[in-house]
């Protein structure tokens, strides 16, 4: 790993000023992704500004009944928080399904939002990758694509977004609070990540000197009746092939509220808006769930090795909604 400068930020204003002042500077949180990428040679910052001593590690109640989660709350603490487990079970389950106990103790909420793809071609510097080196090409196209995306891809990039947490946040209409020397702004989670298009290296709408300071979860009845289901190659400690974050409220046999988001199949945390449109007001039956899944997956584009994801996603969506309709939430 190339050496770099290191500074400890003592307040948010100082942290954002330090990164704004130096083009090669980056924020350092838990380090579980950034340090790995630096050791692999994919990332090579000149300076790291350590933000882990900033006072951004609280979970607070919001006046409207929602929650405000500090960007430095560790993933394990988020998943163990009583209010998250009771009112947003899909989020606790999603976080617990990712990484390992040790990694969740290190990784922060802000870092999880900004974690980068695990596409093997992104990591392997002997291959082309438009995300790592703009304009170099895409090693995955025509390569081994079993883990790659079927939604939101472009001729430049097929990489899946790796986060489980973000899939739950996409279903929950989370809002990300961001600070920089220019002030504070709020970005809906669904607008935070970009589709790759022809600029896959631009992964989010954030400027390099913008610091995530919090994530807000609005109050919603549907959030309490929610589940996360993750399908992967082994029972634990693996990235998703397909994952589903869902919330469902049924009254008199009809769907009155539904939230659905997908992971492991898309280039960004994927809110299934087409499926939600089909389901809202429909009878809460397996036929409806299947029709909703089909509507969402109609635009899927498959590669040589990942065609199985269409059927796997369809079945996982139907099974998760069915379980919510019959048993309720995981809380």
């Amino acid at each position: 790993m190339k050496d770099f400068g290191y500074r400890v930020a003592v307040d948010v204003a100082g942290a954002v000023a330090a990164v704004a002042a130096e083009p090669g500077a980056r924020f350092l949180g838990g380090g579980t992704n950034l340090v790995d990428l630096m050791r692999s040679g994919v990332e090579h910052p000149d300076t790291l500004v350590d933000i882990t001593r900033l006072p951004l590690d609280a979970v607070d109640e919001l006046p409207d009944g929602g929650l405000r989660i500090g960007a430095l709350v560790r993933n394990s603490d988020l998943a163990a928080h009583p209010a998250v487990r009771r009112r947003y079970p899909v989020l606790a389950q999603a976080v617990l399904s990712g990484a390992s106990g040790q990694l969740r103790n290190m990784a922060t909420v802000g870092g999880n939002l900004l974690q980068r793809t695990r596409c093997a071609y992104f990591y392997d510097q002997a291959t082309a990758c438009n995300r790592r080196e703009p304009g170099s090409g895409c090693g995955a196209i025509g390569g081994f694509t079993r883990t790659h995306a079927i939604l939101g891809t472009s001729p430049s990039c097929l990489a899946t977004h790796p986060s489980d947490m973000c899939v739950a946040l996409a279903a929950l209409d989370a809002v990300v609070e961001v600070e920089s020397v220019r002030g504070t702004r709020r970005v809906p989670l669904l607008d935070l990540h970009r589709l790759p298009g022809d600029t896959p290296h631009q992964e989010t709408v954030l400027e390099p000197d913008e610091l995530v300071t919090a994530v807000e979860l609005p109050a919603a009845e549907v959030a309490a009746v929610s589940r996360y289901r993750k399908v992967r190659d082994r029972a634990s400690y693996a990235f998703a092939l397909v994952s589903v974050a869902a919330g469902l409220v049924v009254r008199d046999g009809a769907v009155v509220a539904v939230r659905l988001a997908l992971g492991g199949v898309a280039t960004k945390p994927w809110r299934a808006v087409e499926a939600e449109r089909v389901l809202t007001g429909a009878p809460a039956t397996e036929d409806s769930f299947r029709a909703a899944a089909d509507a969402e997956l109609a635009t899927a584009v498959v590669q040589e090795d990942n065609g199985f994801k269409v059927e796997l996603a369809r079945r996982t969506i139907v099974a998760t909604l069915h379980r919510l309709a019959t048993e309720g939430s995981a809380a």
């Binding site: 617990l96 993750k230 809380a331």
Partner: peptide
């Protein structure tokens, strides 16, 4: 891990996460 469990933390294998 034992300390996490003693503090009441759930896991991905926990049926009722609350």
């Amino acid at each position: 891990m034992l300390a996490e469990h003693a503090a009441g933390a759930p896991s991905a294998a926990t049926e009722h996460v609350a």
